[in-house]
């Protein structure tokens, strides 16, 4: 009897949660303009706006959580949040353990930024954030990789001469270059890595992946995704 009541209660609970499912969105909060903590202390940026829109379309309640880049995948697997929406490039390596949505940013370029445009980026010391596709690329390119825990530090290392250049998503570097008053320059050639940026989810959450996929498809179709990309990444950004 007791068991029965418990089960019905559980059923009611699951039914209730199906109606207003809370999805916890995990992000890094340190990668403007993708995602950052604004001056009010809230998660802000392109992905915040996109995520909120997608949740609204799928009738989900969304809660934003920030976490260290280092542990972002293990914490998702462990169930501390339900999605990773943190400028994560879709790569074959990651796709083995994560279920990615379709990309919401087209395959974008990664670029080298240096103090001097003539810097040889195939040799020399290149700074990149630990655990990113860019770090793996530099390690394989023949240049000497200098790794930092946060994207901030990579730029700082290039500025103070510790590294000859910094290698990161071009969209991240553009505002920094624009505001450097001519001190920084692009070096080498841009590189296409990965299949664009997508949301990462647990493989077992197929339903949720579908919901977000549907949302992204709709936003691609009506052009609102492009508007959003242009708003945050500037006129020159690659759109769909």
């Amino acid at each position: 009897m007791k068991n029965l009541i418990l089960t019905t209660a559980l059923l009611a609970l699951t039914a209730g949660s199906a109606m207003a499912q809370t999805v916890r969105m995990g992000t890094e909060g340190a990668y403007p303009p993708y995602n950052f903590i604004n001056d009010k202390g809230e998660v802000d940026g392109f992905e915040r706006e996109l995520g909120d829109k997608l949740c609204e379309m799928a009738a989900l309640t969304c809660e934003w959580v920030t976490t260290d880049w280092d542990g972002i995948i293990p914490n998702l697997q462990s169930g501390n949040y339900d999605t990773i929406i943190a400028g994560m490039n879709i790569t074959a390596e990651r796709a083995e353990v994560l279920a990615f949505t379709q990309n919401y940013i087209p395959p974008a370029s990664s670029a080298y930024m240096a103090l001097d445009a003539g810097t040889d980026v195939m040799k020399g010391v290149i700074a990149a954030q630990t655990g990113t596709v860019q770090a793996a690329h530099v390690a394989a390119s023949g240049a000497t990789l200098l790794e930092f825990a946060t994207p901030d530090e990579t730029v700082a290392a290039m500025r103070n001469g510790e590294a000859d250049a910094v290698f990161a998503d071009k969209d991240y570097l553009v505002p920094i270059l624009d505001e450097s008053a001519g001190k920084f320059a692009w070096a080498g050639t841009e590189v296409q890595i990965g299949d664009g940026v997508g949301m990462g989810l647990r493989k077992s959450d197929t339903e949720l992946v579908e919901k977000f996929n549907a949302g992204i498809t709709a936003m691609k179709a009506d052009g609102s995704l492009n508007t959003l990309i242009t708003k945050w990444f500037g006129e020159k950004a690659v759109t769909f």
Partner: peptide, 26 residues
């Protein structure tokens, strides 16, 4: 957290983090 790893030459914890980053299993 202190010094950057140069040319992927790091200490025990650095390589452990590398493997965690690749295998996603801490």
């Amino acid at each position: 957290s202190g010094f950057p790893a140069f040319a992927q030459k790091g200490d025990a914890l650095y390589y452990a983090s590398y493997f965690v980053d690749k295998t996603f299993n801490p």
